[in-house]
Design a protein around this nucleic acid. Structure first.
Lengths: 231, 231
DNA sequence: GCACTGTATTATGTATACAGTATAAGTGAG
DNA sequence: CTCACTTATACTGTATACATAATACAGTGC
C-alpha cells in the first residue's frame, strides 16, 4: 500500500510558505523580518517559525543579521558563476551515470514532463514552468542514483532561483529551453553518452548566459525608472 | 581593543561537541540517541539539543529515524565516489582561481600549515593531522574567493570524515600526503596552473584510493575478529 | 546644541509544560 | 502458544514563559 501522507507539521507549512515567497520573489530582499513578527502574522508560536527560518538560513536562502532579523539573500554575478560551474559538473555526471540503465518507461516520463512544461508556457504560467524545470533536472539526478549529488544540486537550484523569476523566464528563452530539453532526452534515448552530456553542458551554459543578459537588462531598466522617479 | 569573543550559546556547545564525537568516530553508528536522552545526559533542556541535532541532520552527519531517534550516518562506497568527484571539481577550480593572485605571504602561510601537519605526524597526533588537512584545503578555497564552493566543500569534507579516522590516517599514507601538499604549493609558487590543478586531482584520487584500500582492510580484520569472537 | 548615561524596547536563547501519536508492552481470550 | 486488543511509554511538535543582552531612545547635564 501507499504510505499514508503524514499531515504536515506547522514548521513544514511555514517553511514551504516562506520558501515559496522567497523564491517567487514576492518577498522584498530589503525587508527585515523577525521570528516574532513572523509568528505573530501567522498566529502561531515562535517555535516552528524559529525552526523554519533556521533551516532556510542554513540553506542560504535567508541571511540572519544578529539582533536585526532575517532577510532574503542576494546572489551576485560571482555566485552565479560558481553555481553554474558546479551544476555543469553534477549534471554531466548525472547524464553519464544514468544513460546505460534508463528504461523506455522512464524516457516517456521525461517526455511527459517536457510536454507539461510546454503547456505551462502556452498558458503563460511562469511559476509552473520554473517548477517543472526543477522537477525535470532533479528527476535526472534521481535516475542516475547519485544521492549526494542530488542533495547538493537541490541546494544549488534553490540558490539559482534567488536570481528571480523575471530573469529566468525571459520571453523566447523558454521555448529554446524546451527544445534543448527534448534534445537531451533524445540523446539519452539514442544512448549517446557524449552527445547527451555535451547537450546538457550547452543547455546550462546558454541558460546562464541568457539569465545574465536578462539580468543586466532588468537592472538597466530599473536604474532608468529609478532616476526618473527621482525627478 | 580586541573585540570580546561572544560567549558560545548552549546550542553551539552541543553542536560542536556532538560533531566532534561523530567525526572522531567515538560515537557508535549503531547507537541511537534521542533529544531527550542527550538533553538529560548533558543536563540541559531539549531546546538547544533539538536545534543542534536538527542542524547536524541537515548537514547529513546524523540521520533521523522517526519515533526512534538519531544515529550517525554511514557512508558507502558509492557516496565516497560522488564526494570525490565533486571535491575534484571544486578544488581544481579553486586552484585555478587563486593561482594568479596568491601572494608570497599567503604561500608562506600554506608552508607553515604543512609544517605543522608534519609535526602532528611526528607526534602521532592523528586528530590534529586530519584537522590540519581540512584547514589547508579550506584555506585554499578561501584564497580562491569562491564562497559558495567553499560552503559546499565544507559539507563534503564533513561527510568525508564519516569514513573514520582509521581509514584516513593510514600508516605511511600521511607522509605521502605531506609530500603531495608540498608539491601543490610549489606549483602554486611557480604559477603553473596546469601542474597545480593536476597535482590536486592526483592528490585527491590517491587519497581516495588509499582510503578505499584501508577501509577494506579494516573491514576484513573486523570480520575475522567477529567470527573468532563468535566461537 | 551636543554628549553621555540610564531606561525601555526588542530579538533571541533556553527552559518547561503539554498534547498527540506511534510503538512497545502487557493482558487476556481462543 | 499465538493473536488481537488494550494500555502504557516515549518521541516529537508546539506553545508559553522567562532571562539576557543589545539596540534605540530619551532625558539630563554641560
Amino acid at each position: 500500500m501507499e504510505p499514508i501522507a503524514r499531515r504536515k507539521t506547522t514548521k513544514e507549512i511555514v517553511y514551504d510558505q516562506l520558501k515559496r515567497s522567497i523564491l517567487s520573489g514576492e518577498l522584498d530582499p530589503n525587508q527585515m523580518m523577525t521570528e516574532t513578527s513572523l509568528a505573530e502574522s501567522l498566529h502561531i508560536s515562535r517555535t516552528p517559525v524559529r525552526e523554519a527560518v533556521g533551516d532556510l538560513t542554513k540553506e542560504g536562502l535567508l541571511i540572519h543579521i544578529p539582533r536585526k532579523g532575517f532577510k532574503v539573500r542576494r546572489i551576485d554575478e560571482d555566485d552565479m558563476e560558481q553555481i553554474l560551474y558546479l551544476r555543469i559538473s553534477i549534471e554531466m555526471r548525472s547524464v553519464k551515470m544514468l544513460i546505460d540503465h534508463i528504461t523506455d518507461e522512464e524516457l516517456k516520463k521525461l517526455d511527459a514532463l517536457i510536454d507539461e512544461q510546454q503547456i505551462a508556457i502556452q498558458n503563460n504560467d511562469r511559476i509552473r514552468y520554473i517548477e517543472l524545470d526543477q522537477i525535470l533536472h532533479r528527476h535526472l539526478l534521481k535516475l542516475s542514483n547519485q544521492n549526494i549529488l542530488e542533495q547538493i544540486l537541490q541546494e544549488l537550484y534553490n540558490l539559482t532561483r534567488l536570481i528571480g523569476h523575471a530573469a529566468i523566464s525571459k520571453e523566447g528563452r523558454m521555448e529554446e529551453v524546451i527544445q534543448e530539453h527534448r534534445e537531451i532526452v533524445n540523446a539519452l534515448r539514442e544512448r549517446d553518452e557524449e552527445k547527451a552530456a555535451d547537450l546538457m553542458r550547452h543547455h546550462l551554459l546558454t541558460t546562464a548566459s541568457s539569465v545574465k543578459k536578462q539580468r543586466e537588462q532588468l537592472k538597466n531598466n530599473k536604474e532608468k525608472s529609478d532616476s526618473l522617479g527621482g525627478l
